[in-house]
Design a protein around this nucleic acid. Structure first.
Lengths: 154, 154
DNA sequence: GGACTTTAATTAGAGTTCGAATGATTAGAT
DNA sequence: ATCTAATCATTCGAACTCTAATTAAAGTCC
């Protein structure tokens, strides 16, 4: 039930994001990106995309929303006019400090009550799965002719 | 790097879905729902939502698209007119047989080369994480006053 | 200096996703 | 029989997400 687990995680992620938005006014991706800005300081769009594991197009869209709400500020580099830097406004700093770590807190709490060994195992496994599934995406497997000879879990 | 792993999985899922769409004309959710119809036969919207781990609103939307393309057929129950059943058309049966198991095949392949013990561990861990994160969603944790006392990851 | 390539950000277009509100229909209570 | 509550599906509004195409600015090579 591998794929089912993945779908459940994807969905829970989405639901968490919506709950977060209700509670703080920031969705998951917004908070993730904002946290990135907080950590990286003046930061380019591309650097944020890497940080948040999102395409730059998505980052731009989120950033537009945040700029409209005066949570971040954006401006072009003077030395290289292609580049746009983003930084937090005071309001943004405040917001991010209030919401930081909220996303994922429930999961963290549930993990915390497990024995350390088990916890490490889960975290490591999740990272392995993420690695494998990301690689898969690169190679794509779907543009290969062979097709799927190994049937997934079922 | 727990949250990062989750984000990577979510994204890979999305990318896989798009690759699948390119290769077969069916996105991930479309294939999942179609597989559900194939397995469950005449099936209600709600049953599909449970099967696919999606809200019924989403299922309706996907089904609309599929009906337009004559891949499924929908009709109201005569005994209870609130209920709408869905079933595959011949075209849909063909399609689903061709695409079945394609989604997730890359991951399955990568798992297959691992020793059985390791593979089982990863699968079980993923299921545990899915359980925890789903529970989290139910309780929500965000409508609690306490806030996040246990910071995730870093 | 001009032509070509590369790099960064953005816009356009399409699809998924959810919660909340709505519409129908059925079931239950008096 | 009627009124109310519950159930099933659907529509609506909003956000995220991607790829592909576009725009702008540098860098490279003669």
């Amino acid at each position: 039930m591998l794929l089912k687990s993945i779908r459940r995680i994807v969905r829970a992620n989405d639901l968490q994001s919506r709950a977060l938005a209700k509670a703080t006014g920031l969705t998951g991706p917004q908070l993730v990106i904002l946290t990135g800005v907080a950590e990286l300081g003046e930061v380019t769009t591309q650097a944020l995309a890497d940080y948040a594991d999102l395409s730059s197009a998505t980052v731009v869209m989120v950033l537009e929303n945040l700029e409209l709400r005066a949570i971040v500020q954006r401006y072009r580099s003077t030395s290289d006019r292609r580049i746009v830097y983003t930084r937090l406004t005071p309001k943004g700093t405040e917001l991010v400090n209030g919401a930081r770590g909220l996303f994922g807190a429930g999961l963290a709490q549930r993990l915390a009550i497990l024995p350390a060994g088990k916890r490490q195992e889960l975290i490591a496994s999740l990272a392995s799965i993420a690695d494998m599934v990301s690689e898969t995406t690169k190679t794509t497997m779907l543009d290969r002719d062979a097709g799927a000879d190994i049937s997934a879990g079922r």
